[in-house]
């Protein structure tokens, strides 16, 4: 099965929220939609789910045009950012409700629910209401509900954003095992690039309703096609320097090293970050961040350098990539 999004646009109150967007996610593939808040990534998800409809363009699942069919008939498993669990129903009822309104037989409902409960190891929680579950359990229930209907496509809207950092790390493998490594296309919305990189096969970086670049995490890191992608991917943020006229030269802090023949600089201050340190260095091109190992010793006279092939050149006006490496 393949999810195809062809040239969709969405306009609300004369604002183009989504502009001519296209992408494709095939079976077993996980596409992360990554971008700052308000860039249109959640809207994209809602358009695929059928909770909203595009002004232009079409959406296909497995070569079937689903642009104008009802949400339920698209057979989509969606996990909401808030999990959207029914607060007045217990775990069992939460799972059963959908099957009930779709008119499944009682015996079938029981069987499917029980199977999913044991897969998710939630059988002992069936009587609990959502507010009696932990954050992780809630997420698992939301996943269970999405899986229960054996959907054609999974849509995950910031599924981890309500969890604390530690829990997030713990739950990543779970989410990967249950859904992402399955055989269905998955669209995963997040604003966290680490999450995007670790969970998906490819990433679409979005800004202002447009996809800036689609590619693997490596592609985006090594070869950003615009200044926006370069700045968005990679932490600490990439250095942007004006070395040549009308060109912005970007160099990642981790690609800068000390070189006694390099650029004359002055150390401004240091952030020590455990396994590495971040040096803030004043140069004639402006402030430069340099990342190096925590053990790295600093020379008395700060002089820095970087390999020419690590330079990314962007047009100052359009932000488009100029050099090819």
């Amino acid at each position: 099965m393949t999810l195809q999004v062809n040239n969709i646009s969405r306009c609300i109150n004369r604002n183009w929220i989504i502009k001519d967007m296209s992408f494709e996610v095939s079976n077993g593939e996980c596409l992360a939609l990554l971008g700052p808040s308000g860039c249109g990534k959640s809207t994209t998800l809602r358009l695929i789910a059928g909770l909203d409809s595009p002004n232009q363009g079409s959406i296909f699942i497995d070569n079937t045009d689903i642009t104008n069919i009802s949400p339920v008939d698209r057979n989509i498993g969606m996990v909401f950012q808030s999990y959207a669990l029914f607060p007045h129903l217990n775990v069992l009822e939460n799972l059963k409700l959908g099957l009930k309104v779709r008119g499944n037989k009682q015996t079938e409902i029981e069987e499917r629910v029980n199977r999913i409960l044991s897969i998710m190891q939630m059988s002992h929680l069936v009587k609990r209401r959502p507010n009696e579950l932990s954050g992780g359990q809630k997420q698992r229930l939301a996943l269970a509900r999405a899986m229960l209907r054996q959907p054609n496509v999974y849509l995950l809207d910031e599924p981890m954003s309500n969890l604390d950092a530690q829990l997030r790390e713990e739950l990543r493998p779970e989410l990967r095992d249950f859904i992402i490594s399955g055989s269905k296309p998955v669209v995963y919305v997040t604003h966290d690039q680490q999450e995007a990189m670790s969970m998906s096969n490819k990433i679409a970086v979005m800004n202002e309703g447009e996809i800036q670049q689609i590619g693997t995490a490596k592609d985006l890191y090594n070869r950003p096609n615009s200044l926006f992608v370069a700045s968005f991917i990679g932490r600490p943020q990439i250095n942007t320097l004006s070395i040549k006229n009308n060109v912005i030269t970007a160099i990642r802090p981790e690609h800068i090293y000390f070189n006694s023949e390099g650029l004359d600089c002055k150390l401004s201050h240091i952030e020590w970050l455990g396994n590495y340190q971040l040096l803030f260095i004043e140069s004639k091109y402006g402030l430069i961040k340099m990342m190096c190992s925590a053990e790295q010793e600093r020379p008395e006279k700060i002089k820095i350098s970087w390999n020419k092939e690590r330079e990314h050149d962007f047009d100052k006006k359009t932000g488009k990539r100029l050099n090819n490496i």
Binding site: I76, F80, A84, F86, G98
Partner: peptide, 8 residues
């Protein structure tokens, strides 16, 4: 919305 996706 979740319920709508479920067919409600």
């Amino acid at each position: 919305e979740a319920f709508k996706l479920e067919g409600g």
